Simulated scan of single mutants.
Amino acid sequence: MSRGKPKHYLFSALALLLVFVGWQLFRGGKQDFANELDRFKYGSLGAELVAGIPYPIFRALPQVFPDLLERHASLGPGADQSGGAAYEAFGLAAEADHPLPIGFSIKRLGVERVTINCALCHTTTYRLTPDEAPRHAHGGPGHTVNVQGLLRFLFAAAHDPRFTASGMLPIIERQSTLDWSERAIYAALWIPLTRLALRIAGDQLAWTEEKPAWGPGRDDAFKLPKFLLTQAPWDDTVGNTDFPALWRRGERTG
């Protein structure tokens, strides 16, 4: 009987480890919004499991990779590269009282994860005078949004040797408080998994580099679902299109 105890303890330890990892991966949360407009701007579409980036990692990326940010975004002299402000360089609409621009959802699934929603590409930013604060037309075409630049930045970061626990954690811990267990799980799990997921996504979208650049306010709305969802054969067609407005769609029927 005594010889079986070490195995019993080992199995118990492994079971506890699996429970802990599962809790880290899948413990959930909910989002509460004051109104439907806020839900449109920041609500989750349910993609956290397959496409969610842990918020502390997403927030730290511009400061870990400022050179890649400058390469793929349009940063003016003295631009703020901290937190969510840096992501505005991709032409995204932003509000001062939110940590990330409009179109980014933060929802807990294991940890707080960042995903995008429809408002990212369907919010118009405009000014009535050159010196006034930007205004937003919600549901309008995101004519300044550089989606391809944002994706290129994320994919380039994932292939950079600085995307490691030693490279990322010092920046993450400047912005987020982590206890010893959270620090360990980020080093062993979240940072490597995020890097791997971004590399896989970059491989899936590698075809975009062989086509005309999307440019601000556009993406290839036909090839994205055709190649990613239906797995249709590669072809030479180009489907770059402007982001449309979401209002008064009935007038376009026919």
Rank of each mutant, 00 (worst) to 15 (best):
S2V: 15
R3Y: 05
R3K: 11
L10I: 03
S12A: 14
S12M: 11
L16Y: 07
L17P: 05
L17V: 10
L17D: 06
V21H: 05
G22R: 08
W23N: 14
Q24W: 07
F26N: 13
R27N: 12
F33P: 09
A34Q: 13
L37G: 09
D38A: 14
R39G: 14
G43I: 09
G52S: 09
P56C: 03
P56K: 04
P56L: 01
R59A: 04
A60Y: 02
Q63T: 04
F65H: 03
P66R: 00
D67E: 06
L68R: 00
L68G: 01
E70K: 07
R71W: 01
R71E: 04
G76K: 03
A85S: 08
A86Y: 02
A86Q: 03
Y87I: 05
E88P: 01
L92S: 10
A93V: 10
A94L: 05
P101R: 13
F104R: 09
I106V: 15
I106D: 01
R108D: 03
G110L: 04
G110E: 04
V114T: 06
V114D: 01
T115L: 09
I116L: 03
I116V: 13
H122V: 11
H122T: 10
T125M: 11
D131T: 14
A133N: 13
P134L: 13
R135S: 15
A137N: 12
H138E: 15
G142C: 10
V145Q: 02
V147T: 09
V147N: 04
L154F: 06
L154Q: 06
A157V: 03
A158L: 09
H159I: 02
D160S: 02
R162Y: 00
I172M: 01
R174I: 03
S176Y: 07
T177D: 11
T177P: 03
T177F: 08
L178R: 04
L178C: 09
D179N: 15
E182M: 11
A184G: 09
Y186P: 01
Y186K: 00
L189H: 08
L198H: 01
Q204P: 05
Q204K: 14
L205Y: 06
A206R: 14
E210L: 05
A213P: 04
W214T: 04
P216S: 12
P216Q: 12
F222N: 12
K223D: 08
L224K: 12
P225A: 12
K226R: 15
T230N: 12
W234K: 15
W234I: 07
D235I: 07
V238P: 02
G239D: 06
G239M: 03
D242Y: 05
D242N: 10
P244G: 08
L246C: 14
L246R: 07
R248K: 14
E251A: 15
R252V: 06
R252G: 10
T253P: 02
